[in-house]
Design a protein around this nucleic acid. Structure first.
Lengths: 270, 270
DNA sequence: GACGATCAACTGGTCTGACCAGTCGCCTGG
DNA sequence: CCAGGCGACTGGTCAGACCAGTTGATCGTC
C-alpha cells in the first residue's frame, strides 16, 4: 500500500538537503532578481566592479564571476573602459537560441527535430496572426515580401535578413511575446545550423531558384493572412518550411517532417 | 534606387566589425567544443584549475571565469575538494528551462501568454503523439490517469505530479525531444507561477472538483490518443487547459486564451 | 588482519593587490 | 571652435595567498 494517510504528509518534516551556496551565486541572484523584478530596467547601468565589491562586501573575483554568469545569460553586457559600468540588457531570446542550438548540435535532438519544431511554432504564429494582425502589420509584411523579391537574385544574405524579419513581424502580430521569442530562437538556431551547408551545397542557380520559390510561398501566406484564414496560413507555412528544408535533412528524419504537415491520414494505406 | 548592381555585392568588402575576444571566452569555447564534439563525453573529468592554467597558459581567474560560464550553461559541474576535477555533464535541458522560466517571469510576457503558449505546445504534442505513440506509451498513460483518479480527493501534490508525468509521457511520445523539453519547461513555469495562487484561492471542495474534471478531461484525451485521432486530442487538450486555467487568468487575458482554442470564426458576429 | 581515527596533500572558493590596454571627459593650445 | 593630449577612470588579466572541505593513505588499536 503506497498510499499513506494524507494527513501525515503535512506533518512530516520534509527537509531539503542543504548545499553550500557560493558567494558569487548569491551576488548573481541578487542582481538577476533586480533585473527580472523591474528595478534595473534594460538600458540602466550597474555600478563598477569596484563599487559592487564594496556594496556586496566581497572580493572583486567574486563580483567578476557573478557578472560572467549574468553576461553568459545575456542579462548584462560589459565593455572595458566604460565609466558607466555594465549595461543591463534585460531578458533576451539569445540565451534561448544558444540553448536550442546546443541541443540541436547534441545527440539529444537533431536537425530534423529542430525544423519540425519550427514548423509547429511558425504554423501557430500564422494561425494567431491571421486573427489578430493589424493593417499596419500587413503593410509591413507586404513591404518585406517585395523586398525579398527584389533581393532574391543576388543577395542571399539580405534575402535571409528580410525573411527573418518577415517571420519576426508575424510572430509579433500573433500577440504572444513568448511564442515570438521562441520562434525567433528556433529560427536562428536553424539558420546557424544549416547556413554553412546551404552555402557550399547549392550552386548560385539553385539558390536563386529556392529564393524564388520562397517568395512565392510568402506571397501565398500573405494572402491567407490578409483573408484572416488562419488554418490556410498555417498549412502553407508548414508546407513552405518542409519544402525548403527537407532536401537538407538526413533522410531518416524526413518522415518526421512529413508527420508535422498535419495532413490527416485520409489517404488509403500507409 | 536602393537596388545596386548585384555583381558589386560579392565584390564589396563586407568586413565584420572586429571585437576583441576575451581570453576566458576562448578557453570556454575550446572546452565547450570538446564537450559538444564528443571527446570529453558526459561523466569524464576536466583537469584541475591549476593544471588547466598551465595547459591554456592563462591565469587562474581566467580559467575560473571560463568554468563559471560553462557551469552556468549546465555543461560541467564542479565541487570543492574533488581531486578529479570538474565533471562533464553534457548538454542538458535545464538551461532551456531556466531561460524559458526567466522569459515567463519577465514583464515581457504575462500569465496569459504563458498558458496560451502551453496550449499550443501541448496541442501539438497530442497531435504528434496520437500518430506516433506505442502501445507501451498508452499503457503508461492509462496507468497515470488511474493514479490521478485515485489521488484526486486528498493529495493535490501527488495529483499534480502524476499530471506532470502524464504530459511528459505524451511529449516524449511525440518523438520530438525539443518539443518535449519546451513543453516541460513551460509546464513547470505555469505550475510555479500559479501554484501559490491556487493553493490559497481554492477551498478544498473546489480543488477536488477541479481535479475530478481534470481526470475526466484526461480520460477523453486518452481515448482520442488511442483512436489515433490527433485533431481531436489536440482540441481536447486545448479545451482542458483553457477550462482549467481561465478562471485564474486576469480577465483582459481571457480573449487570448479563447483565441488559442482554434474554433475557426464560423459564428455569425463578433 | 580488519578497522576506525589521523593527517597531509590536494581541491575549489575567495581575497588582495597589482598591472595593462582601452575609453571617456576635461582641458588646453592652436 | 575644434584637435589633440592628458589624466582618471574602466574592465581584463595575472600572481600569490589563505581557507574550508574532500580524499586517500597512513597509523594505531583491537
Amino acid at each position: 500500500m503506497p498510499a499513506e494517510s494524507p494527513e501525515r504528509l503535512t506533518a512530516r518534516a520534509d527537509f531539503r538537503p542543504v548545499r553550500p551556496v557560493r558567494a558569487y551565486q548569491r551576488v548573481a541572484e541578487q542582481i538577476e532578481e533586480r533585473i527580472l523584478g523591474g528595478s534595473l530596467p534594460p538600458g540602466s547601468r550597474l555600478p563598477g566592479e569596484r563599487e559592487l565589491m564594496r556594496q556586496f562586501d566581497v572580493g572583486r573575483s567574486t563580483i567578476r564571476e557573478a557578472l560572467r554568469v549574468l553576461q553568459s545569460s545575456g542579462l548584462i553586457r560589459s565593455r572595458p573602459g566604460d565609466p558607466q559600468g555594465a549595461e543591463v540588457l534585460g531578458v533576451s531570446p539569445d540565451t534561448l537560441s544558444h540553448a536550442l542550438g546546443r541541443l540541436a548540435r547534441s545527440h539529444l535532438s537533431g536537425l530534423g527535430e529542430l525544423i519540425q519544431f519550427r514548423m509547429l511554432l511558425d504554423a501557430e504564429s500564422y494561425r494567431l496572426a491571421a486573427r489578430l494582425h493589424s493593417a499596419d502589420d500587413l503593410r509591413r509584411l507586404t513591404g518585406l515580401v517585395d523586398e525579398m523579391a527584389q533581393l532574391a537574385p543576388g543577395d542571399p544574405r539580405g534575402f535571409s535578413a528580410a525573411d527573418g524579419e518577415f517571420h519576426r513581424v508575424v510572430a509579433e502580430a500573433s500577440g504572444n511575446a513568448l511564442l515570438a521569442l521562441c520562434a525567433r530562437a528556433v529560427h536562428d538556431a536553424v539558420v546557424e545550423a544549416i547556413e554553412s551547408k546551404l552555402v557550399r551545397a547549392e550552386g548560385a542557380g539553385e539558390a536563386a531558384d529556392a529564393m524564388r520559390r520562397s517568395v512565392a510561398h510568402h506571397r501565398q501566406i500573405l494572402d491567407a493572412l490578409g483573408a484572416r484564414d488562419g488554418a490556410r496560413a498555417a498549412r502553407l507555412g508548414r508546407q513552405a518550411l518542409h519544402d525548403h528544408y527537407a532536401p537538407h535533412v538526413p533522410p531518416q528524419d524526413r518522415p518526421r517532417l512529413r508527420a508535422a504537415l498535419e495532413e490527416e491520414p485520409e489517404s488509403p494505406a500507409g
